[in-house]
Write a protein that binds this DNA or RNA. Structure first.
Lengths: 207, 207
DNA sequence: GTCTATATAGTGATAGAC
DNA sequence: GTCTATCACTATATAGAC
């Protein structure tokens, strides 16, 4: 089958980014050579330098792709499920689940660490976090209105708290899974939303 | 002035660990050479290898020292202040404050990332987190009893939530400070402890 | 004088750049 | 594929404490 040069180029680009996501997450950016990434993608370092200008450029391109995937994945649980408990559990599950070889959170923190040190990474990363918070805030706002339970703080700050609790618990969970119970995380999230156990049980009985 | 070899040795060790803490936090473990650490400590790589056996050993030794400092620093705000709001604010402040060159959280996450990949780092790190949670749980338990506000979950899971919220908010704060308001974080923490605004205001008026 | 903490000066391997 | 720099690491030398 014939393929245009654009198609070949796009595939090489995608293969390189996929390989980088896997290797950077598992071993860390500095521990991985450009040649190793190229090899894992069945390409050469020449292709890598042609597409991204270097390893740093590859990291930046990876962030841009990851940006859309990760926001979608995290919010999918919240936006697709109707029952609140399931929504909350799905979001924590998305963070702790062993998707992508168990390295989701690793790559996220790898990117964060680079972003905290280098504004060229940090600024787009900050925009992505802001975007996730905005979408989450909108979802929480809609939910609060529909459920008749007013949010205790602005939707933005509520979203920051929800996202923060999820990240912080996932970080602890990764080192010591039994120490952070998924059920307790969900309950903590309910409290952030102003749902006491009593209220939420009433809400569940008479929706 | 005469100094014993033990004293010289102890100072060299301390200088190397201090330099490593600074450089690993600012640039990242893999981005810093053993020689750079030794140079910053006004020592040579020979001393580094004699003391720690290599860069990895230095990271492990750093973790052990950091272990005590960081737990103490994080909990200091909670254990020394009596007013709850001040306690909560102090803990978030400890995480976001620019102490140690603004790199406190960076080194913490650097260690976490290595711990998540390497059990030799991960296990002592997990023990440290467990220790912080245990001390925090004890403090929260005592507070709940004294305040007459029962915790909504086990002290351990409450502590995991509090610590998680603090870490996750600090992570977001680092990339985008205005997006995470310290006041909102404190309010979120109150909610985790089962203190509605109304109850806490009553508590404050009639302690 | 002897011991050992630290310094010096390398080794082979491998990185990124072009 | 080649080149240069630099990596982690080590073998040996020095210098200071007992």
């Amino acid at each position: 089958m014939a393929r245009t040069q654009d198609q070949r180029r796009a595939e090489t680009r995608a293969r390189l980014i996929d390989a980088a996501a896997d290797l950077f997450a598992r071993k860390g950016f500095h521990a991985v050579s450009a040649e190793a990434v190229a090899g894992a993608a069945d390409r050469t370092t020449g292709a890598l330098y042609n597409h991204f200008g270097g390893k740093e450029g590859l990291l930046l391109a990876l962030l841009e792709v990851w940006k859309e995937q990760t926001a979608a994945e995290l919010l999918a649980g919240f936006e697709e499920v109707t029952e609140l408990d399931e929504r909350l559990a799905a979001m924590f599950g998305a963070l702790t689940r062993d998707s992508r070889g168990g390295s989701w959170l690793l790559l996220e923190m790898e990117l964060w660490l680079h972003g905290a040190r280098d504004p060229a990474i940090g600024e787009p990363l900050a925009r992505r976090y802001a975007d996730v918070r905005a979408r989450l805030a909108e979802g929480l706002s809609d939910w609060a209105e529909a459920a008749g339970v007013p949010l205790r703080r602005s939707p933005e700050q509520t979203a920051a708290g929800v996202l923060g609790l999820l990240i912080g618990c996932a970080v602890q969970h990764r080192l010591d899974p039994p120490a952070v119970e998924a059920r307790a995380v969900a309950e903590n999230l309910r409290d952030l939303l102003g749902l006491t156990q009593a209220i939420s049980e009433v809400g569940m009985r008479s929706p």
